[in-house]
Amino acid sequence: MANCLSAVFLILSGLIMARPLYAVTLSGQVHSDGKPLPDVVVTLKPLSHDPRLSATAGKPVSWRLDQKGKEFIPHILVIPPGTAVYFPNSDDIQHHVYSFSKAKRFEIKLYKGTPAEPIVFDQPGLVALGCNIHDWMLGYILITETPYFTQTNAEGHWSIDVPAGDYQVSLWHPDALAPDTLPNEIKQIQTAQTLRHSIDLKAWRASGKPPDTLQMQGYIERF
């Protein structure tokens, strides 16, 4: 996510810092090809250096990324650095979750139930998850430094309360046709606003879900 601060915005944010902080609601909707797009990650990065804006939200929270029906649930998880993520296994079969992404290289063997030890994601970045047993399984953990992030729901809607200020609003989705050209804009947020965005997706997308017939599920990568 490139920083593209202009002098104008720096001055604006300087002026805003003199004011008291108050929460405003920023919301929006993301579409793709006219249809609502769920799971889009929306991050708001404060542009001022006010420590009140960039403070991480309270005490560390632990998250869960479930293995259910031979897929990762949720498909995309957004967390701040330092978050401990538990990987419970709700299936009756074993899963062998791994990642070789630079942000976190790990492997965890999952029997049924929840392992005692979580995985801690310290570095910001994107972690792609796979399962060594079920080759189609695919999931993502996005570790973001900003405390202000959310995801679109099934209707493509998102909403977040932030202190008034200047933010760089960025969108991310793993199936975006050209991730570099996703909306990544600087917004001065003083009052409630609604944003609308559209993302072009790849024609074919790896869903991370099992094949939809038993004929194809019976095939476990032989080659």
Binding site: Y98, S99, Q215, M216, G218, Y219, F223
Partner: peptide, 25 residues
């Protein structure tokens, strides 16, 4: 493998990976 390189092998009686169509049970 937790690196970009992965190794695997199979031993026994199997069909060489020629077909792009016979991918089901």
């Amino acid at each position: 493998s937790t690196s970009a390189w992965q190794f695997g092998t199979r031993l026994g009686m199997f069909i060489p990976p020629v077909s792009m169509e016979n991918i089901g049970t």
